[in-house]
Simulated scan of single mutants.
Amino acid sequence: MPVTESNAQLPAPIEKHQQARQRLWPLWIVTLLALALAIALAFWSWQQWNNYQSLQQSITSLESDTEQLDRMYGQTGSEQSQRLQALEDKLSEQRELIATQQRQIDHNARELLEAGNRTRTDWLLAEAEYLLRIANQRLMIEKDIRGALAALESADEVLAESDDIGVYPVRQQLAKEILALKGLADVDRTGLYLKLEAAIDSIHQLTESALVHDRAPGFFTGSDSGSQDNGDAEPGLVAEAWHEVKQTLSQVVVVRRMDEPVKPLLSPEQSAYARLNLQLMLEEAELAVLRGHQELYSRALTKASNAIDNWYDSSNTRITALSKTLDELSEKNVDPELPDISRSLELLKSRLAGRLDNGDSEGNGQQNSANSEQGDAS
């Protein structure tokens, strides 16, 4: 076999640099993939970091909001508790008011039920009881004899209109009490009070001339008429000189007679104090008149009369009239002995209670009879 044919059948030789180039491309692919993966991992980490920062800010904001809400809730809770307490208090008050109104409604209902069962006689007896209460109040508290007498007489007239024979003991006692009041001397408290007011006004009108002054009895100066006659009898310069000496001595020396009591002199301040003192004494007497206190009334008028005698001139016309008025007022009795007029009221109360009991028993009897009739009908 020729050599050329055997050489022609051998494969072609492969170059070494082509084989090496063909083996590097997977490495580049792996490198690119690793780089892409690193970039993706870095981007993902960056996003996670941003998310973490946002989450941290959100948590901080939530904590601050939570604290603010806690504070607000604390304040709101206290306010709500106060409002609830106020509402509970108001609710309790409303409950008490409703309970009171309910009791009042029940009471009114009972009164109306009782009023419907009353007769004309019951109404007249109730009116007489009211008049007797008024009479006792006028006499015992106000000490008004005239008003108490008028109330007793009106009550007797009302009882006379009733057809109840059980009021005979009440009217009998009323007759005794009316007679006892008529036997008393009525005290005109209004008149006494007005007279004392007039006396106080007269005290305010007193002037300085009404006070004890240097013209009081037992007081005189040395310049009297006898000395002037003796001076005129002496002739010449000696008489004139003597007259001048006596005039000078009369202005310096004062002679008083001690055979009569001497009243003290008053200054303007003392005179004002005296008037005020008299006014207070008479106002005390007015208070005693209104209260019906005889001892206080007499003591006040006695002190006022003594003050007038000690500090004022009895020859003054106003003082004379004032003293006479006080003497007349001191004779009045402002606290007469009052009788007891409560017995008639007690008798009438007993009669009203008896009629009420009889009415209840009659009503119960009627109800029992009605029940029995219903039972028979059934």
Rank of each mutant, 00 (worst) to 15 (best):
A12I: 12
Q22F: 06
I29S: 04
Q47H: 08
W49Q: 12
N51T: 15
Y52F: 02
E67Y: 09
Q68N: 12
R71W: 05
S78R: 14
S78H: 09
L87P: 02
S92W: 03
R95T: 15
R95D: 08
I98H: 01
R103N: 06
N108G: 00
A128G: 01
A135L: 03
E142R: 07
D144Q: 01
D144I: 01
R146Q: 10
G147S: 12
G147L: 12
A151L: 02
L152W: 02
D156H: 02
S162I: 01
D163V: 14
I165R: 04
I165V: 09
P169N: 09
P169Y: 05
R171W: 01
Q172C: 06
Q173G: 03
E177R: 05
K182F: 02
A185I: 15
D188Y: 06
Q205F: 06
T207H: 03
T207N: 06
V212Q: 04
V212C: 02
T221F: 07
G226F: 05
A233W: 12
K246R: 13
K246N: 12
Q247T: 15
T248I: 12
S250L: 05
Q251D: 10
R256M: 13
S267W: 04
Q279T: 07
A285L: 01
L287M: 09
L287A: 11
L290Y: 09
L290K: 14
G292I: 05
L296P: 06
S298K: 11
T302S: 05
K303R: 14
I308P: 01
S314W: 00
N316M: 07
V334C: 00
R351K: 11
D360K: 15
S372H: 11
G375C: 04
G375W: 08
